[in-house]
Design a protein around this nucleic acid. Structure first.
Lengths: 152, 152
DNA sequence: ATTATCCTTTACGTAAACGTCAACCTTGAT
DNA sequence: ATCAAGGTTGACGTTTACGTAAAGGATAAT
């Protein structure tokens, strides 16, 4: 039985829209060896796998990975299936380094989050003070007008 | 009483060493308005505050902040002490956006950490399989040698 | 038939964040 | 006195990650 498995594919602009990047960006990632879409004629056809790769690449970017680093991780992930010992050890080394990076970032983020909260409170505080002052200024003015009416 | 307060200061290379950046980097940050060291003649003298700013700038970088963004946050932090309502509202807006960023990053990191762990396990697994195989190969060889001795 | 909509390649341009000289003080040690 | 160690200001070079424009092919609607 020739099982016709339907595979969902994507056009370049579909992916661009979904991930809010330009098509230029996606083509660039391909040029850098991060994506490898099939072709229909000369038009690119992206598989679900390609889509995942794009997702991972973008997440990597948000976490400060260069495209080259992401590519390296992808390549290793692909090759370690049939990797030799040296490859595997190298991969483990990279993985542990990345994990250290992530621990660092995690603590960076937590510290920054606290500081942002503090700044926000400070800011809200200053804001309410400004508003109170302005309110008082207005009520003073109103009072003045009232008195002027009584007098004039 | 003329209280002579001793203030710890730093040279550019001290800071460079401490934070593992080049002096070029530090001067560049000054040029971009992130640092503002005092001068003694023409040599730069960094205060503890300058040092903190450098620290924050570098942490910002690790979290994907551009130098311009960090500068903006510094400037606002400095100015919101006597800021008007519009300034404060703008600052609050930025703060909430940054917080959203950080939440996103936090989840990115947590996901990636899981994936790195999985990859590590997979890799360790592959490694031990490779080693077992090699061990067997060696023991086979040893056995062969033994037999050859017995025969030869 | 032509207009519009996607898609393509090629190629030059650009902003950010430094690196890398060059050419020049200054200052304490030998 | 000189010389090494550290500091300074330009100024041009480099890498990364795309932007932007030019010139054109393929298909679908009007």
């Amino acid at each position: 039985m020739n099982k016709q498995v339907k595979v969902r594919t994507f056009s370049i602009s579909e992916l661009a829209k979904e991930f809010d990047v330009t098509t230029r960006t996606i083509r660039f990632y391909e040029q850098q060896g991060l994506l490898n879409p099939a072709r229909q004629g000369q038009t690119r056809i992206y598989s679900a796998q390609d889509r995942v790769r794009l997702m991972l690449t973008l997440r990597g970017k948000r976490l400060g990975f260069s495209l080259a680093e992401s590519k390296e991780l992808f390549d290793m992930h692909d090759s370690t299936a049939q990797g030799n010992e040296k490859q595997l050890l190298y991969m483990l080394d990279i993985l542990s380094k990345k994990q250290a990076d992530m621990r660092q970032q995690l603590s960076d983020i937590q510290r920054l989050q606290e500081e942002l909260n503090i700044a926000e409170v400070r800011c809200q505080d200053a804001l309410s003070k400004v508003r109170l002052r302005d309110q008082k200024k207005n009520s003073d003015k109103q009072q003045l007008i009232q008195e002027q009416r009584r007098v004039g």
